[in-house]
Amino acid sequence: MASEGAEYDRTRGAGDTAEATGEGGRETAAPPDPKIAAAVAAAEAAGPQHGETVRIDSWIWSVRLVKTRSLGATACRGGHVRVNGERVKPAHSVRVGDEVRLRHEGRERVVVVKRLIRKRVGAPVAAQCYID
């Protein structure tokens, strides 16, 4: 019986060590701030499911390229937003890998979609959703 208890403790201890190592490995790959990691997880959970898309006006607002979604829609209607080189309407669906060009406040931003989100997120999380 004593050996069974020792074996159980050894197994349990090894599991704890593996979990700590795994968690440490994740921390180096993920942002170091736990608040940012939690926000990224929440954004992914609220994002579209596999195969779904997001409206361009909603996406540029979510990743903080414009202040409001209505400003994003107005920019699309005015021809200031291009996806893969073509002018788009506010309801155009954006996908991962699309190139988005936005002329806003006297400058042009060119970003490549890296992650689709629907809800507005903080700046550190938003920066992980596109390649500038």
Rank of each mutant, 00 (worst) to 15 (best):
V54W: 00
R120W: 01
A126K: 03
A14R: 15
P48R: 13
G85V: 08
G79R: 07
T68D: 04
E99P: 02
E23H: 10
Q128Y: 03
A38F: 04
S70P: 01
G106I: 07
L116M: 06
H50S: 12
R101P: 00
G51Y: 04
P34T: 08
P124C: 04
R12I: 10
P48W: 02
I56K: 00
V94F: 02
A39M: 09
Q128W: 03
E7R: 15
A126W: 03
G24Y: 10
L65G: 00
V111Y: 02
N84V: 07
V125M: 05
H104A: 07
E105S: 12
R95Q: 15
A20Q: 14
V112C: 09
A43Y: 03
G22T: 15
V110I: 15
Q49N: 11
L116W: 01
R77N: 13
P48F: 02
R77A: 11
P124Y: 04
V96Y: 02
V100F: 01
H104L: 11
P124Q: 05
S93F: 03
V94S: 02
V83R: 00
R10G: 06
R69V: 01
K35D: 09
V40Y: 02
A46H: 05
I60G: 00
G85F: 06
V121M: 02
H50G: 06
A14Q: 14
V111C: 04
R120Y: 00
S58N: 09
P34R: 06
V112S: 13
T21L: 13
T74F: 05
G15Q: 14
A20M: 11
S58F: 00
V94E: 01
V66I: 11
K114R: 15
T17Y: 10
R103T: 14
G122D: 10
R69S: 02
P32V: 08
I60R: 00
S3I: 14
K114Y: 06
V88I: 12
R120V: 03
A126P: 01
E19G: 10
H104T: 13
E52V: 04
K89Y: 03
V125Y: 01
E19N: 13
A45K: 14
T11W: 07
V94G: 00
K89W: 03
K114G: 07
R115Y: 05
P90N: 06
E19W: 10
E99I: 13
G78A: 14
G24C: 09
A41L: 09
S3V: 12
G15E: 15
Q128D: 08
R26Q: 07
H104Y: 12
G25C: 10
V94T: 11
E44I: 11
H92F: 11
K35W: 06
A43I: 03
S62A: 15
R95Y: 07
V125W: 01
K114N: 11
V112D: 04
E4S: 12
P124D: 03
R107H: 08
G51D: 03
S58V: 15
R109Q: 13
A75C: 09
P32S: 10
R115W: 04
N84C: 08
V54P: 00
G47H: 02
A18R: 15
V100M: 01
T28C: 05
R26A: 07
A37C: 06
